[in-house]
Design a protein around this nucleic acid. Structure first.
Length: 393
DNA sequence: TGGAAGTCAATACC
DNA sequence: GGTATTGACTTCCA
């Protein structure tokens, strides 16, 4: 069984100054692949990473056989078959991937995360790993997530994946044949974007109730799996934390003095007001329809390495200022559509009615419009807007 | 067709 | 100057 919490440790500095404490260090593996991700969707972990806080991670060395892992791919591939034989409930969670590369001595590294909260595990996984393909198999997480090249799979999720694949087997070409790692050499963001489409990650897991049985899950080959199907797959399991994304983005924009207007226009292709609204009042993912797109874009941007996204946006900001000046100049010559503003008495009357009834009849709206000297459409708009903006009134 | 969701854009506000 | 608010428009869906 995996025991790692009490390991004594050597300390290795990573590019972002994190200290990784290990037993039986494998310098080749560390030197080549242990980059530390300095960004995270979670604002808290983002703050931590930006502050260059050292992170201690217990790492032990195990052979694949000890872990029930059967290496399937070439040495540098992250793809393994997992067989959770008698450890179906997984007392410990195992992180595999390039972090599990075979060492020069033929052993395999596994980081034990037992005893930590799911959030802690996820934050660590996000914060510590970069430039590698990492799979986190963690009991207690209830969804499949792709964050900066990290896939979190739990048995419940595996069941769902299996169920999905069963229903879409026609789309699964080269079912068990592909072994490629698709995002080697890509940026974090690219990895994240493509993580759901990566090819043939094979995971064998034991059902909770049926020890010894294994569930084989193969994700399709990116080369042969058509885009529509991969989209369906991605969207089926997508479950973004809109609040976290909104907080993280607000933090980033402030930190780098990026105006909402610039970000909204250049990255999201939306207006400043729209961005402000969703940042302040992000709706839960499951309540969104088309509004999910904006959060996907935010996350994609957050997933980009800072060196890439910040200078690019600053350049865009300068251009935006020029464009704004030109627009203002044009508007100055044209006419701006002025906006109606309710008087205090109109507002009081409208809200008084709204308090009583959220959906007044057409007749009532007409009467109200006449009484207040407003258009019927204006009154209808008021109630429409009030229902979503003041649901608690 | 009405209502909800998504959004724009004017403008109030800090 | 940047952000928050909000009246109105568009799109989607039942």
């Amino acid at each position: 069984m995996i025991t790692g919490e009490n390991s004594s440790a050597n300390s290795v500095s990573t590019p972002s100054n994190s200290a990784v404490q290990m037993q039986e260090l494998d310098p080749l593996t560390l030197g080549a692949s242990e980059e530390v991700n300095t960004s995270s969707v979670c604002s808290e972990s983002r703050k931590n990473s930006h502050s260059s806080k050292n992170i201690d991670v217990s790492v032990e060395t195990f052979t694949p056989e000890v872990l029930g892992l059967r290496k399937k791919s070439p040495l540098n591939s992250s793809l393994y078959d997992l067989t959770f034989s008698e450890h179906s409930k997984m007392e410990s969670e195992i992180r595999i991937g390039d972090g599990l590369k075979e060492s020069t001595d033929g052993s395999t590294r596994v980081e034990s995360m037992r005893g930590k909260t799911n959030e802690a595990r996820r934050d660590e996984a996000i914060t510590e790993t970069s430039g590698v393909v990492t799979t986190v198999v963690s009991e207690g997480l209830s969804f499949v997530e792709s964050t900066r090249g990290i896939v979190v799979v739990e048995e419940v999720a595996l069941d769902r994946i299996h169920e999905f694949i069963s229903g879409n087997v026609a789309n699964l070409q080269n079912y068990n044949s592909c072994n490629n790692t698709v995002y080697e050499g890509k940026s974090d963001g690219q990895k994240s974007a493509s993580v759901d489409r990566r090819c043939s990650q094979t995971v064998k897991s034991t059902e909770n109730s049926e020890i010894g049985q294994s569930l084989q899950v193969s994700l399709p080959n990116i080369e042969t799996f058509d885009e529509d199907s991969s989209d369906i797959f991605r969207k089926k399991f997508e479950d973004l934390d809109t609040k976290e994304i909104a907080e993280a983005l607000t933090y980033e924009l402030k930190k780098y003095s990026i105006p909402q207007a610039v970000f909204a226009r250049k990255v999201l292709n939306r207006s400043q007001g729209t961005l402000s609204d969703v940042l302040r009042k992000p709706k839960p993912w499951n309540e969104l329809r088309g509004g999910r797109e904006i959060f996907r874009k935010m996350k994609e941007w957050l997933d980009l390495p800072e060196v890439k996204r910040i200078p690019q946006l600053r350049t865009e900001a300068a251009l935006e200022l020029d464009a704004k000046a030109r627009r203002a100049d044009l508007h100055g010559r044209g006419s701006k559509k002025s906006r109606l503003h309710f008087t205090d008495s109109q507002k009081r009357a409208l809200f008084a009615i709204f308090k009583e009834t959220k959906k007044p009849s057409k007749e009532m709206q007409n009467a109200l419009a006449e009484e207040l000297g407003l258009e019927c459409g204006t009154v209808a708009n008021f109630f429409m807007n009030a229902r979503r903006r003041h649901p608690d009134v």
